[in-house]
Design a protein around this nucleic acid. Structure first.
Lengths: 350, 350
DNA sequence: CTGAAAGCGCTAACAC
DNA sequence: GTGTTAGCGCTTTCAG
């Protein structure tokens, strides 16, 4: 350290961190000499070690990156989180631990993150990195899923109720044969294929709580309407491609050609399904009702019947939970509101 | 440090970092005791201080966050960078220093970032944070702009040539009255308004090199075709809203109703302009030719005549430059290829 | 294969 | 308003 320019290290430190602790004149001189000597200012790492604050929060992304970066809802969440970090002058450290990477590498990355707290976004309940991030013993906020993580705060919505409301809407229109297109239900690729009808085993014990809750929501509504919930055809799209929804729609209609409504657990799925149906000359909602979930701008502008959830707000809340922890120190649960949007893609069955 | 479980600190350290340096049995015992004692493993910050490696790269974003998160081209860049970081097990630290924040706060954030290198994405040549990040004396990669930063590597395209090629295309179709819709040309909001014709002063000395080069490219082509480059109507959109392109189109057509071609420096601008024109009942390309820049998926699918640039690849390259620096240690310049896409939005003037 | 000692660069307490 | 001292938690020689 350049204490040798003329004064002690404290003075240097003060020059940078406490302008009021020394004469403006001296401070000027210190800074000038520093610049001249090429001293880049206090080392942030050393400072972090001493102050025990890293000045950043970690965002652990366990899904493949192209997944997160292609879903507007996920991006909105990140934007909201980034925004709340910017507000308080914190950095946001993306820790990507997708399937392209060995678990040990990923573990190392989580362990190496110099952060003051973690946000976990939408992980499966058996995610291998969850124990690792818990081990860090830092403030932790889980967004969306898993729904229950010991010691972690949570930000999410009532997926079951929201999806149930959507299913009520569909059932009230008169639909009885329903297909549900869902994102992956487990970390492992299903034997049946990348896009396939989920076998009862897999659909019965989903490792992604959000998907599970939404399935349950549909079944709740079916039961309430006297429809056998076992009749629901669930198609799982394991990957996240622009055409996934279309493929899933095709699989669903093959599995049960009498389906009159396709409910999707994400707008991106629904929009892709609509593209597929249009290409096939199938009219929406005349011949088939399609519903989504998320309320992304594209869905709204295309008139999709969907559930709007406040994705940006989720990010902001997650940030806030980290930046201004509750006085009790106990984890907090925030359940945000959703809104059913009746668009132009749902109508009575043909 | 929990050296007191039974052995020395070295042994603990080795247990975590050098499994081969001690008996598997002892290692087991150490790890078990650690878990029992609730020792979360080596502190990443202390380790970074000692090893002089932070395990992360910083991404400095000087534009407002909603700007970056609403432009697919910018997102693709981030995705590419994140991908290359994931590959090598590095984190990606977002340092947002937008205009919502005081310069001193932003400076502090840049100075506080515990990273091994920085990427600066698309900043103005007079950005106040540029000197700060340079002061850090870390490996630095600038993407897009400014085109020349001392000591920094650069990843970008030949904006001038790419835009010139597009202008040639437009001129060859016969257009002579051209409007150019561009992103902001300076950090300060122009006096004329958020969306306004850029006065010669402002258009003549743009602080965003990319925009400047693209303007120059259009003028090059005009000159080559014997058209007075001063006739070009340049409309600057200072902010980045979904309707910005439409507003800019309106301003351009008001300034010169004889315009037959609207060239845009971004697809998002062009698509918004198309929406506006459609709402006004103006046919593209029948009555007006519209061109874009970037080659985002939406533009391609809507048949926009545009320039495709490899945004994801830019991110990957930027990451690579940081992760595997040249052996010479000298800054490197990478100029990526672009491709002119002749879509369905350009045609002969009416 | 294991231990002792040094020190990364900084800031917080406290004395002057 | 300025200097002295101690130590954040770790890894890295170097000896045993």
């Amino acid at each position: 350290m350049a204490a040798e320019l003329k004064v002690s290290r404290t003075t240097i430190s003060n020059a940078y961190n406490r302008p009021d602790q020394l004469s403006a004149d001296l401070r000027e001189r210190v800074l000038a000499t520093a610049k001249q000597l090429g001293y880049p200012g206090p080392d942030p790492v050393a400072r972090s070690l001493r102050t025990r604050r890293a000045g950043a929060v970690g965002l652990m992304i366990t899904e493949p990156l192209n997944y997160s970066f292609s879903d507007p809802a996920a991006l909105d969440f990140v934007a909201g989180l980034a925004e709340s970090c910017e507000e308080v002058g914190q950095g946001l450290l993306l820790v990507a631990v997708g399937p392209n990477r060995s678990v040990s590498d990923g573990t190392a990355a989580v362990l190496a993150a110099g952060v003051d707290g973690f946000v976990v976004y939408s992980a499966s309940d058996d995610d291998p990195y969850l124990p690792v991030v818990q081990q860090r013993a830092l403030p932790l906020v889980v967004v969306d899923q898993p729904k229950h993580v010991a010691g972690a705060s949570h930000v999410g919505i009532d997926d079951r109720a929201a999806m149930r409301a959507m299913a009520e809407h569909v059932l009230e229109l008169g639909h009885r044969e329903i297909g549900l297109l869902t994102m992956r239900l487990g970390r492992e690729r299903p034997d049946a294929g990348v896009v396939a009808v989920a076998d009862p085993d897999r659909a019965g014990t989903p490792h992604f709580d959000v998907q599970g809750d939404r399935i349950q929501g549909v079944r709740d509504a079916m039961t309430a309407h006297g429809v056998d919930p076992q009749k629901l055809v669930i198609v799982e799209s394991f990957e996240h491609q622009p055409t996934s929804g279309g493929l899933a729609a095709e699989v669903a209609l093959e599995a049960n050609p009498r389906i009159t409504a396709l409910m999707c657990t994400a707008d991106v799925l629904a929009l892709s399904a609509m593209d597929y149906l249009r290409a096939r000359g199938i009219y929406v909602p005349g011949q088939l009702t399609v519903t989504g979930f998320d309320g992304i701008p594209d869905a709204i502008s295309r008139g999709l019947t969907t559930v709007r959830q406040p994705s940006i707000e989720k990010g902001r809340r997650a940030g806030r939970l980290l930046h201004q922890p509750s006085r009790s120190g106990l984890p907090e649960i925030e359940v945000l509101d959703t809104e059913l949007i009746r668009g132009r893609t749902s109508g009575p069955p043909a």
